[in-house]
Structures are given as C-alpha cells and as structure tokens.
Simulated scan of single mutants.
Amino acid sequence: MKSESTQSIVLGDVEVIRVVEWQGAFAPARGLIPESGTEVWKDNEGRLAPDHWEPGDDRAVVALQTWVLRSGGRTVLVDTGVGNGRERPGSPQFHHWQGDFLEGLARAGARPEDVDVVVNTHVHGDHVGWNTTGADGAWEPTFPHAQYLIPAADDFYFGPDNAYGKGHREDDRLIYEDSIAPVHRAGLATLWEGTHRIDEHLTLESAPGHTPGSSVLRLASGNDRAVFVGDLLHSPVQILEPSCNSCFCLDAGQAVASRYRILERAADERELIVPAHFGGSGAVEVGRENGRFTLGRWAASATR
C-alpha cells in the first residue's frame, strides 16, 4: 500500500518522522529469513501478526520507509527508498515503480530543497532510490542542497572500480548508475568509514555484514537513545534469533556479529531499535531474559 500519512515521535531534542513508501507482504517468511525455524514465527504470532507476518500465507510483512530527523535546526533523511521509474529487473515488485514518496515528504514538512543531510545506511536499491529523480536516464540529485553520506566501503564495492558488486547482479550496476553516480557528479557525496559525527545528537557507525559498508545511525539526546539499524534487521524474528540473517546479507558471519553487537548495546543502554523495514509503529525496545533478547514495547507515535 502507499503511504497516506506520516507518524512522528520526539526523542530528546530530535523529532523523528516516519514516511512510508510501501508496506505489505513481501516474501515467504523463510525466504526472507532462511535460517529461521517455523517455531519462532508460530510461537510469537501474537507479537508478529499482522504487522510483521501473515500467518495464513506464511509471508513476512515489511515496510519501505524513510526516517526524517529534525536535529539541531537541520533536516536529515535516513535512507531514501526505492524511487520512481527505475530499471530493476532483479526486483520485479519495484521495477518501474511509481509511488507518492515526495508527497509523503511534503506532508512531513520536508521539501527536497530543505533537506540538509541524506544518510544512505548502505547501497541497496530500496535505500538509495530517491537520492535522484529524472526521466529517460537523466538522473539528478533530488535534494540539491544536501550532503549525501555514503559508506565508502559500499561505494567501492558497488561501484565501477569493483565492476559494480563484482558483476553478480545487473541491478547493482543500475542502482549505482542511477542513484549514486549522479550524486558524485554533482559534488554532493561524502564518503566515510569507521564513524562519522553529523551533529551533537547523531553519529554514524560502521556495522558491516549485510553489505561491506552497512552502517547504523545512533541518536543520543537528553535521556533518549535510539539506533537506526538499516538492514541489520528485516523482521523482529531476528531480535529473537540474532544468528538468523536475511537472504540479502553478503557476509553471514559479519552480519551476525554486527547484529549481536548492536542488540547488546541497545539492551544495555535502552536504545530504541529503529530498523528500515519494520511495519507497525516501526520501532521497538529490546530487553534480555535468560540470556536471550526479547521484544519490549513498541514505540508510540503520533499520526500527522
């Protein structure tokens, strides 16, 4: 379904606004999370259905969304979704997709010219698509005054110097050429590695595995803490079973190690977990019980 509203929460001095590009049943549950057993889904049906799982069809439900952060007087976007009119033969669901994402941003009070920073947590097609707009292949940055923060490791891995992800998928070349290369040509790309501080509240941190440059964004303001984890998590099942990767993770061992590290800190420091693809309210607290991670409270948000 397309987004008809935006939702917001306030964490310290930072307003967090959620803009949904698409939400629905995406793939068979164990197609998306191959190593997850049927039991973890069935045993947690009350927490997973209907926002994260359709039990009847056994399909995982996900959202494609952007988080708009108002921090320090600036507007920061975390990931930019699929984008319209893209050649994505490897992703039939979003091949030549047409949606109302920019209208959703407008409802959130974020016109393209007002965006100051764009964070791409990693270079996958559903996280960089609205980096650019255009027609007939003439792609230009959507946010003309923004600094685009792109993980250096992903820029190299998916770029021409590495023959676009070593040539494994045609989509990787197409994604780079229509959503990353135009940002470089416009002089708006900033490549970073390790950590990168955006402002007093926001810091990027490398969390490799899903992709070589996969990253998380930490928010700390007042007594509130949150971590935007990108694709370290596609489903709440991966909080309950952190050793289970998604089918899209490129380095299984690194992805598991990054996931455990991020979840442990979230549990210890009471950070709100904000993944790229959770449905429902989109964000959840994490706890520990008998040596295992547990799902805590879902974030309360206000519809705008």
Rank of each mutant, 00 (worst) to 15 (best):
169 R>I: 02
174 L>P: 04
182 P>R: 10
161 D>R: 10
171 D>S: 11
167 G>R: 10
177 E>S: 04
177 E>N: 11
180 I>Q: 09
181 A>D: 13
195 T>G: 14
169 R>T: 01
160 P>K: 02
160 P>H: 07
185 R>D: 15
170 E>H: 05
192 W>G: 13
163 A>E: 12
176 Y>T: 09
190 T>H: 14
183 V>M: 12
168 H>R: 14
173 R>M: 09
187 G>K: 04
172 D>P: 02
170 E>K: 11
164 Y>H: 13
179 S>D: 11
178 D>L: 01
170 E>F: 03
164 Y>I: 03
179 S>L: 01
181 A>W: 04
180 I>W: 08
171 D>I: 03
167 G>M: 09
193 E>G: 15
193 E>H: 15
186 A>L: 04
189 A>K: 00
160 P>Q: 08
190 T>N: 08
161 D>G: 03
182 P>F: 05
180 I>D: 11
173 R>W: 02
176 Y>R: 05
172 D>E: 12
189 A>P: 01
163 A>H: 13
167 G>T: 07
162 N>F: 09
164 Y>G: 00
188 L>C: 08
161 D>H: 07
178 D>W: 12
190 T>E: 12
175 I>M: 15
192 W>Y: 11
186 A>V: 03
180 I>A: 11
193 E>P: 09
164 Y>T: 03
184 H>P: 01
190 T>L: 10
161 D>A: 13
181 A>E: 15
184 H>N: 12
194 G>R: 07
171 D>V: 05
193 E>M: 06
160 P>N: 11
178 D>K: 01
172 D>Q: 13
161 D>L: 08
164 Y>Q: 07
195 T>C: 10
178 D>F: 07
188 L>T: 02
191 L>V: 08
187 G>Y: 07
176 Y>F: 15
161 D>W: 02
189 A>I: 01
162 N>S: 14
186 A>H: 05
191 L>F: 09
183 V>D: 10
174 L>I: 08
173 R>Q: 13
166 K>G: 12
180 I>L: 14
180 I>V: 15
164 Y>F: 15
182 P>C: 10
185 R>Y: 00
181 A>Q: 15
171 D>Y: 03
177 E>D: 15
182 P>L: 09
177 E>H: 02
173 R>T: 01
165 G>E: 06
175 I>H: 04
186 A>D: 06
174 L>G: 09
180 I>C: 11
162 N>R: 13
173 R>I: 00
191 L>Q: 14
193 E>W: 01
173 R>S: 06
177 E>V: 12
168 H>M: 03
173 R>P: 00
